[in-house]
Amino acid sequence: MKKQFNRMRQLASQTVGRAEKTEVLSDDLLQIERRMELVRLVSHNTHKRLVSCLQGQVGTDSEKRHKKLPLLALCQTMQDGGAQLGDESLIGKMMEVCGQAETTLASELMEHELQIERDILEPLYQLAEVDIPNILKQRKQLSKLVLDYDSARTRWYQATKSSNQAMAAKVDSLKDEMEEALNKVEICKDQLSADMYNFSSKDSDYASYYLTLLESQADYHRKSLAALETAIPNIQLQQGQMGGPTTPPPPITPLNSPARELTSTPPPQRNGSVYLTAGTPHSQGGSRGPSPHLMRRGRSSLHVPLKGDPRGRPRIRWEDDISKLALGRLGIPQDEVSSLLELFPSRPDS
């Protein structure tokens, strides 16, 4: 209790600047200490997220882990469905053989997760929750020993400067206490320095955990792909033996439909003059120009505004509308439409 009180009093004196604080760690060791804190944090977060990515329960044996896999539940469901439909049903047979393939994938997944737990999760947990906390615990212990040494040194220094005989009699005992505290500081400092330098020398080992993770994932995917490439041809062969469809025929689209040959030919370009320049028979057997009745019907069907009609639109706009209608519905070029419009007589102003 007295030692704890001396520590608190020495810490308060150092905080307000009335007492000198002893620094026992070099700059390199202080830098390693700061980096250890960061490594512990990122390793803890990585371990936590990696555990959440696994489908099996971490820490259980292989049999229990295999039973808890969602993929194995899917396999069991597919095999049960195949048994209910029977071997006579193509769907039932496919569900059964595909369920067996999914069982193989579930076994590969279980082996992969066991390897992840053994080679990555356990070392990360050891680093983040055991190794680095032990070093930091030693660092706190060293700080306490340094406070004890500073407190003993302060009391010894005050006793040497005091004129009180009682205090002068305690100089030797205080000096022995100070030397003993210094020895404890040196021992703890040496052990802490060795652990810190050992941690710093294993950076490559700690970094290899993440490369091991990628290599394990690559090996798992290769094994899963090999299992699928082995199972799929056998399943397709069984499907063909049971009379199932192989490759479905391509759907009939308008591009390869026979009816497209009838509709793909564009409509012939018709000369609009046959519609509007057809004359009536002449008495001499010839033909004359378009009759007024035909011209009125043509003007009415094409919505050509009469001259002087205040409701009519400008000539340029209705000529464009007529040209678009004639080209889209009759196939008459624009130049022929313009020539045909000249044939329409204008109504005299009233």
Rank of each mutant, 00 (worst) to 15 (best):
R297P: 00
R297K: 15
R297H: 06
G298P: 00
G298I: 14
G298V: 11
R299N: 01
R299S: 13
R299I: 13
R299K: 15
R299D: 08
R299L: 05
S300H: 15
S300K: 13
S300N: 10
S300V: 05
S301M: 06
L302S: 06
L302Y: 08
L302T: 06
H303N: 12
H303Y: 09
H303E: 13
H303G: 03
V304N: 01
V304S: 09
P305G: 15
P305Y: 15
L306V: 07
K307F: 13
K307N: 04
G308D: 14
G308Y: 10
G308M: 07
G308I: 09
D309Q: 05
D309V: 05
D309M: 10
P310S: 10
P310I: 10
P310Y: 06
P310E: 04
R311I: 11
R311K: 11
R311M: 12
G312D: 07
G312V: 10
G312P: 09
R313G: 07
R313S: 15
R313F: 14
R313T: 10
R313E: 15
R313I: 12
P314V: 09
P314L: 14
P314W: 02
R315K: 14
R315N: 08
R315V: 13
I316G: 03
R317D: 13
W318T: 06
W318H: 15
W318I: 11
W318E: 13
E319S: 07
E319L: 11
E319A: 12
D320K: 09
D320Y: 11
I322N: 05
I322D: 08
I322Y: 05
I322M: 11
I322G: 03
I322P: 04
S323I: 14
S323H: 00
S323A: 14
S323C: 12
S323M: 09
K324V: 09
K324S: 01
L325F: 10
L325D: 01
L325G: 05
L327F: 04
L327I: 03
L327G: 09
L327E: 03
G328H: 04
R329T: 05
R329K: 10
L330S: 01
L330I: 00
L330E: 02
L330Y: 08
L330G: 00
G331C: 02
I332Q: 04
I332D: 01
P333L: 09
Q334K: 06
Q334Y: 10
Q334M: 04
D335S: 07
E336P: 00
E336M: 11
E336C: 02
V337A: 13
V337G: 08
V337N: 01
S338Q: 03
S338H: 10
S338F: 06
S339N: 15
S339T: 01
S339R: 14
S339C: 04
L340H: 05
L341Y: 03
L341H: 01
E342K: 13
E342V: 13
E342H: 02
E342Q: 09
E342I: 02
L343N: 05
L343D: 02
F344D: 00
F344Y: 05
P345V: 12
P345F: 14
P345D: 07
P345N: 13
P345S: 14
S346G: 12
S346V: 07
R347G: 02
P348M: 11
P348R: 06
P348S: 07
